[in-house]
Structures are given as C-alpha cells and as structure tokens.
Design a protein around this nucleic acid. Structure first.
Lengths: 340, 340
DNA sequence: TTGTATGCGTTATCAC
DNA sequence: GTGATAACGCATACAA
C-alpha cells in the first residue's frame, strides 16, 4: 500500500549513479552543483516520479515549509479576505498555510498557538496586539519568526503590519458631530482581549470628549460581532428616551444588524438615524442607505504579512512596525440629525 | 537558541526512570500501560515542560495530524464559512487544517494538491466534482483518505458531502416562470472546471425547456464570480431588445453586482426586473429588495466533512454520498413581470 | 564539486 | 506491562 514501493531519495541516487547528498543538493537548489549533475538527477527524478517526503525533510532540515495563522474567525469576510491574499502570496515564497481560529478567546488562541508550534511551523501571524503573555514567551522560546497585524502599536516585542484603529474611528465620530449629532450611541464588541475594538471605542470617545458631546453608559451597547447581535443592540438603544440620532458600530457586521432592525422598526435612515460601520465589506455599499465606514486594508495586509514573514524566516531585516492607511468611506448612511 | 537545550523524549525517560518507549506509549494513550507508569511519566513531562516534536513524530508515525483543504477562493464568504466550521470541528478530532486556494484553475488545484500531499497531509477535502484526473491518481497512489464536497454526484471514485446544485436552480427558474416571466436571462460563471456552475445552469435550462420558455445564447452571460462582473453582465443584458424581465444569477455575489448596476441604471426591482442568487450569504436579505436565493449549507458541510474525513482516516466506514438539503429562500427580489 | 556518514526526535517491532 | 533498538527519509558537516 502506502509503504510498498515508494521511491526514495536513495532510489533516485542509484538511478542517477550519484550520491544521496547530490540528489538532495539538486532538489534544494544548493549552490556549487554542476550543470551535468543537475541534469542527471532531474532526469532520474522524472523517470522514477520521485516526490520528497515532507515530514522527513522537515525533521532533517528543521523547517516544515508552512506558517501558522491565528485568526479570531473566518466567518467575518474581512479576515477571510486577508487570509486569502496571505495564502496566495505565500505560494510565491513556497510556503504553505496552517490556519487556526479562536473565536475571540485568548486562551483558545494560546492553546492553538501551542498546537501549531508543536506542529513545527516556521513562523506565525497573529491578529491584533492583545495576547496572553505566554504566547510571546512561547514564540521567543522556540525562536520562531512571528508577526502581529491589524493594529498599529509600536511594541518592541511585537513586529506588526496593520493600521490605526483609533484614528479613523475618531474621524467617524467627528464626522457625525460635524453633521450636528449630539446624541450619539456606540455598539461595540467586548473589548476584553480585543485591542482593535478597544481602540475604535477610544477613537469614538476621544472625538466626543473633545467636542463636549456626552457618551453616557446607557448609550454604549456591548454585544458580540454578528448581525443578530447588532439588531438586538438597536432595539436596546431605541428604548432610550431621547433615543440616539446616530450610532457608531464596531464593525460592518454590527452595522448591518443595526440597519436591519432599524428598517424593521420603520426608522428612516439617514433622516432619522445615522449609522456607521468599520471594515468596508463589499456589501457595505449595497446597504440602504449605503454604509459610511472605514476601509480596512485586508488584502494589503495579507500580502505584506506574507512577504515580511518570509523575510523574517530567512533572517532578513524587516520594518518593525508597518502602518497602512485605513481611509474613511463616506456614504449616505450618515446625514444631519432630524431638526427637532 | 532553538537547538540549545530542548528537552527530548529521552530526557523525559531518564527523568522518569523509564524507557523512551514507555514515554511514547503514555503520550500516545496506548493501551496496556500501568497507572503507575503513566503517573511517573506525566510528572516528568510536567517537570521538564516537555513538548513533542511534530515533524519527528510525523516521520515515525506516518501521520502529520493535519488535513488539507483545497478551495477555489476564500474571498467568497460561502467558502470561508465552510472552512471556519471545518476547522472548528477538526479540533475535536485533534486535527489541524492546511489550506490552499486555486482560484478556479484546476491545474493550480492539482499543483496545490501535489504540494499538500508532499507536505504529508493525512487527508484531503476538495470542492466540487470537477478535477484533473491526475488528482484522483495522486490521492489513490498515496492511499490518502479524501472527500469531495459541495456537489451531489454519486461517483464511486469520489466520496462526497454536498447538495444538489441543479434541483434548486431549476426551482428558482420554475418560480420565475410561475410568476409569468418569459424573457429570462442567466448570468453564470465559466462552467469549465466548475461542475456547480454547470449544474446550476442545467437546472435553469431544464426548467425553461420544460415550460417551453426560450433561452437564447444572447441571454446567457458568462463572467467570473464578482460584484463588478455581475454589474458588467447587467449592462450587457439591458442592451438587448426586448430586455429580460428576470435574471438568474450563478451565485449571490453576481446577483449583488447585477442589482447594483440595475439600481444605478434606474431599473426598479422587482417591478421591472426580478433577480435571483445562489448561496444565501448573510447580506442577501439586506439587499433592496431582499434577494431570492438558495441557502447553501456551508456550515453543515464543514462540520460533516470534518467528521467524515476523521472517520476515514481511522479506517472507519462512512456514507459514500451524503446529500444535504439546500432550500429555496424566496424573498422580494422576485415578482411578476411588468404587464406590457 | 561530490561522496560518506551521522543526526534529526519519534514510533513501533520485537523480545522479555 | 515494559525495555532495547531498528526504522522513518532526508539534510548536512565533514572529508575527499
């Protein structure tokens, strides 16, 4: 069966009339190999249909040819877009992708990281800046190249490629304030273990503080990311008296839910209610009205992470903290509040 | 650093005063191990903080603890939803996920499969029923457990978990015909190497043939999956005279594009134009009007694939061809045609 | 430039 | 039940 008669490196060597070392050298593009030897080996490889054994090569060379990516979830298209471009780009570096999700539970993230490290990955990418301290210890202990992304903290311990989550959030809130809104509510994901959510919330708050616009606790609703959850949040907020004239959402998915519930409740947007998101999912512009949001550079991050991690694995120097622009996308879901 | 003083299996054995074989047995939950030995080893493992080496264990045991998934793209949320649930469920089987995309190019799929097989995966999942013959040869040659999904062909060579793509497509077309449409157009992805697209197209055609509704070539537009592409397709179709009163789209993403372009062109939906999708992405119900579509059981497929592949890896019997329901979701994007 | 010989860290096959 | 020890298949330091 599996074991019967696989052709091994030794078979190729015999067939080509050279040593196993030479075959290995040719296959690994080592320098100082004569063209003649290379040709002989390649011919033998083709003749026998030889395919190297991954685990064996991994054991001997101490690298497995794959990196690990730890993401909160693939169910949010913004992350799957990033993973898609990451995987695509990794191919150029002859590198595979091992993926694990932890659904915003940092203990699960650590556990998943342990598993991947044990698996023998050559490098790791994590999302965000919040992690268990043990995660860092583990990475350093194994001297594993790693990268964090999706944030802009300049932390000596964490090389990163991402964007500022607070600044665009602040600009969204400023935009609402400039439009005349004074009763602004926020729908956010739990901020524990989620620095991006925290940064966005801080951005919202900074803008409002600076403008002297109040943000009482009752106008902040915390729910998990999700359409249903966003819809639920809107219901809570609309019970307030007076109710908010605008809602800043932690991401697009929440905004979708908010808008869905608002429509069902017969609330006209943007006339009676302004709504903002964060991510700029492809569907954001299809909403009614089209959603004002922030474009998270997911594809770009994936691409750059692949290059940077590949560089780090080859001990090449990389920029420690790479910050990409995340532009505001102003659409029609934001407008002046109703004139009372 | 990495090489300095990792604790190895032998260290644990010495620390516990037992043989390496015993340590290995304890770690692998082998039968016939005394409780006393187990305790000694576990204590030693904890004391030394021993972590097994993945590649070494893979080489010796001939299994790597990970399967490979080959998907056309992760950029379509329907696939990332499936992968998310697949990865989640695989954890229960103590199995990791190696992922590769091929962007609807079957040669790239084969190439990616080769790479993953070489990597040493314990099993493979492929999407759909169209693959290069060499893919099957490869899987059989390596005696690798594998599964195809997202289709319902009962092919002895391809165990599968999926749904019928043709039947719901047919029902969508029948729905339009029952509403009174006679000038129905189709926007499809290229059907070469994409059996799902082909099956859906066949479903559309069958319904129309049966009802005596014509489907001339000019009413079939073939574009890649994508919002822009869908928008472009609508432009082409609206140049026809008479123009179609309904458009069947190969998936939701195309439908989104069609609807976007229709809105821009000032075409009222569903009064002047009915549109259908396929997949039921979370955003489908947010469209204006909410999109009539077919719910692809992505999460369910991911979950079942994990269980079935894990079973196959353990040589357990599984259902060869598992077909899941993909229900129609009738919303407001479909209505009777304008009365001329 | 090429060949030889050893090591990579486990698992698994034997005996005991 | 437990312990030696031979695979596992390749990469690489070293010698030539």
């Amino acid at each position: 069966m599996k074991n019967d008669k696989r052709t091994l490196l030794g078979d190729v060597a015999r067939e080509a009339g050279v040593s196993t070392a030479s075959v290995s050298r040719v296959l690994n593009r080592a320098p100082h190999v004569s063209e003649r030897l290379r040709a002989k080996v390649k011919a033998a490889v083709d003749r026998l249909g030889y395919v190297p054994d991954g685990p064996a090569r991994a054991l001997a060379s101490r690298r497995i040819g794959a990196i690990g990516a730890l993401v909160p979830t693939l169910d949010n298209p913004i992350f799957s877009a990033m993973i898609d471009s990451l995987e695509r780009r990794l191919k150029h570096h002859d590198c595979r992708l091992l993926i694990a999700t932890y659904h915003y539970n940092l203990d699960d993230e650590l556990e998943a990281l342990r598993t991947l490290v044990q698996q023998g990955i050559d490098g790791a990418v994590l999302i965000g800046h919040d992690h268990r301290p043990a995660a860092l210890t583990l990475l350093k202990q194994y001297a594993l190249p790693y990268l964090s992304c999706w944030h802009s903290e300049n932390d000596p311990d964490w090389p990163s490629i991402g964007f500022d989550n607070a600044a665009p959030a602040k600009r969204l809130a400023e935009h609402l304030i400039a439009l005349g809104h004074r009763r602004i509510a926020v729908v956010t994901a739990p901020t524990t273990g989620n620095d991006r959510a925290r940064a966005r919330l801080r951005g919202f708050r900074d803008a409002m503080d600076a403008a002297g616009v109040e943000l009482p606790g009752e106008r902040i609703v915390t729910v998990d990311y999700g359409i249903e959850e966003g819809a639920y949040a809107l219901q809570l907020l609309m019970r307030l008296d007076p109710s908010p004239t605008a809602i800043l959402c932690g991401n697009d998915t929440l905004a979708f839910g908010v808008m869905l519930a608002a429509q069902k409740a017969g609330i006209r947007m943007p006339e009676e209610l302004s709504v903002t998101g964060f991510d700029d999912l492809p569907q954001a512009r299809f909403m009614h009205p089209p959603l004002t949001t922030v474009a998270a550079p997911a594809k770009d991050i994936g691409h750059r992470v692949a290059d940077a991690l590949a560089a780090r694995i080859q001990q090449q120097p990389t920029i420690h903290c790479q910050v990409i622009e995340a532009p505001l996308v102003l659409r029609e879901s934001t407008a002046p509040p109703p004139s009372t």
